[in-house]
């Protein structure tokens, strides 16, 4: 039996005392190491689902398990997120007054690492994402693609088991987006990281092992085969 990285069981999420039903009973199993893409129109509940799977919020009903742990029973969700999960958002969300290296070091601050270890690890990651020449630059001095690559390095800083990405190429042009996705895939596959990516983009979805589709707070397609990868990939 394959180990599950993430599992959602009949997950319901309501806002505004039930006036808004963002998720209406979503069940999903994501095996460890799988690259999953979630597609669907705006407002279909993709981001809400990602936030629940990323332990950023708790469901109104049903349950979410990360690496076999039911989030309702996890006492320290901050620690779980810090040690197990990584996030990449549509907007890079880099802190403007910190250099790229310092931004990448942020997730490691709660960890028992020395400053030298943190700096070294952040430097290695930035080198790995092709930003070795921008280590001590502020985000404002970098291009959109560079910032997003720095955000990926930050997400990988603590060696997450599951990486959650919300439209990771949504704020960059298609060429840059392609480069970012290649990097994303290489890094996560080589390290065996489970990835869950929200996207509107069919090309992005095509790089996933599995694609699920959401409409109106429900998963309507639990795993249609991925499209053939673009030529040359």
């Amino acid at each position: 039996m394959t180990d599950l990285a993430v599992r959602a069981v009949d997950v319901v999420k309501h806002y505004d005392e039930g006036l808004v039903q963002a998720l209406r009973g979503v069940s999903l199993d994501v095996p460890a190491g799988q690259a999953l893409a979630i597609t669907g129109p705006s407002g279909s509940g993709k981001t809400t689902l990602l936030h629940l799977l990323g332990a950023l919020d708790l469901p109104t009903g049903g349950r979410v398990e990360v690496l076999g742990q039911d989030l309702r029973g996890v006492r320290d969700l901050d620690r779980l997120r810090n040690e197990t999960l990584g996030f990449v958002f549509q907007l890079h969300n880099l802190i403007p007054n910190l250099t790229l290296r310092e931004n990448v070091m942020l997730p490691a601050y709660p960890r028992p690492l020395s400053r030298a270890e943190r700096r070294a690890r952040a430097g290695e990651l930035l080198e790995r994402v092709g930003l070795g020449h921008r280590i001590d630059f502020l985000p404002v001095k970098c291009s959109g693609g560079e910032r997003q690559r720095a955000a990926i390095a930050r997400a990988l800083m603590n060696g997450p088991r599951v990486l959650l990405a919300d439209e990771p190429t949504g704020s960059v042009d298609s060429a840059t987006g392609g480069q970012i996705l290649d990097l994303f895939r290489d890094l996560t596959r080589e390290a065996g990281v489970t990835t869950i990516t929200i996207t509107h983009d069919e090309k992005v979805a095509a790089r996933a092992d599995r694609v699920v589709h959401m409409v109106d707070g429900l998963l309507t397609d639990l795993g249609r085969p991925a499209l053939p990868p673009p030529a040359g990939v």
């Binding site: 040690e83 960890r111 028992p112 690492l113 020395s114 270890e117 790995r128 603590n158």
Partner: peptide
Amino acid sequence: LHRIVRPGRTGSCSARAAARS
């Protein structure tokens, strides 16, 4: 790459470093 993306689980973080931190 594993070394890069699996910090803290590879034993690279010494107790001394932790205390210092």
